[in-house]
Design a protein around this nucleic acid. Structure first.
Lengths: 227, 227
DNA sequence: ACGACGGTTCGGTGGGCACCGAACTGTCGG
DNA sequence: CCGACAGTTCGGTGCCCACCGAACCGTCGT
């Protein structure tokens, strides 16, 4: 346990892990730039993270693509962020255009987070499509029908069993958004419809015009800010 | 995030946090002994952990009792342990009587873990009282009746909503046991009935004779080993 | 009022680790 | 076949932080 936490407890490594929480695999050099360290240093860190099975790597040509090794690791990083967010309030947090975009909409490993993620969770809760408790959430029968209609593949959840959707605490909004398998499916469908566009070197995603209309039509969401 | 992880990423602090995951508050000196460090060093560490809001402290006479600050912190430590457990297989793990007891039955902040915790989860799943998916679990209607009968107070979960029970990955058994509000209530009832006895300076709990009988009668569990 | 004890504060010391520059390996283009 | 580039390995340097002993501040017993 100490070993794992110590790996995350370094600025450079944490920055790289946070970048990889965007869900896309990144190369060694990209991660070095993001963490503002030289390539050799990054290489050392990445070797450590890979040895500890926090990251997985796939070689492609002369590039090596690193990614979060498992959902379990992603969940751990989430939970650390959640605790960190609580400690933060006294901390001064400078605003920047990039931060604003990240706060508005971003990917959280395999699902949507930020203001948009929370808005979707709120809208679905208001329509009784999902129900949240302090420990997590679940999809209602109406919600199951809605999601199936939306294009989500929930077959993985055994028949006759309620589908579970994990409540993932949002560090910027301090409220829940939808994670777990359900969250991943929602994001997959939104992405497939071209509602969001990934940005390079960032977890932030930008909302397209079609996305704005789609969110309004499907979820009844009106968003003030552009991504 | 870095700050929080770095705090956990030190052997002495991690040992103290792990000890506090037993759920009981411990004094500064006790924690110093557990971590095998001098009192001054422990005091420094505890101050850091308290400043970062990972621990809360209450003074009582000339003793200061430290405890995990919130369920969120407990959950974070759980998730770190879960990831660490996956990395561990190659690691040599010496057996000791104390370790065996801990593996058999222990508290995990506010609920039961270890072989007994997993056995209860398995028994309840087999009887369709709870259902687990990859992300979590939930109590069935029959399960709700069973737990109410058992003495569990599930009123906190809003009416008309399924009660959620968190699946907590067990580091020793590598399988799920029941956490969350439901897990806490099950442990509270078991403890109130005198089925388990806390041990000093350890997360391990010992199963009493009444506990053995009770687990058999209520859950149909037969356990081979003594705690 | 006095020792005893739990706990914290304060300097000083030491080890571990992040970091870099330079050199090396392997892969891709022409 | 030869530059160009992604990535890793290797020593060396420097900083940070855990740790301790000693002294200090409380509270509790008698």
């Amino acid at each position: 346990m100490v070993e794992v936490a110590a790996l995350v407890g370094d600025t450079a490594r944490a920055t790289m892990l946070a970048a990889l929480m965007g869900g896309q695999a990144l190369t060694s050099s990209e991660l070095a730039d993001i963490a503002h360290i030289t390539r050799p240093t990054a290489s050392g860190h990445l070797a450590q993270l890979t040895d500890a099975r926090l990251l997985a790597v796939t070689a492609s040509g002369r590039n090596r693509y690193y990614r979060i090794a498992s959902p379990l690791v992603a969940r751990m990083l989430e939970s650390i962020s959640a605790v960190a967010a609580i400690d933060m309030p006294p901390r001064y947090r400078p605003r920047s255009a990039h931060d604003d975009a990240t706060r508005f909409a971003r990917t959280c490993y395999d699902h949507l987070a930020g203001a948009v993620g929370v808005a979707i969770a709120d809208a679905m809760a208001a329509r009784r499509l999902v129900a949240f408790s302090c420990d997590g959430g679940e999809v209602t029968e109406a919600g199951g029908r809605f999601l199936a209609d939306f294009g989500a593949d929930l077959s993985e959840a055994a028949a006759g069993r309620r589908i579970f959707c994990r409540a993932c605490l949002d560090w910027s909004e301090r409220r829940f958004h939808i994670g777990g398998h359900v969250g991943a499916e929602i994001w997959r469908c939104c992405h497939a419809r071209g509602w969001f566009k990934r940005q390079r070197d960032s977890r932030a995603v930008s909302l397209t015009g079609a996305g704005r209309r789609g969110l309004h039509e499907s979820f009844g969401i009106e968003l003030q800010q552009d991504g």
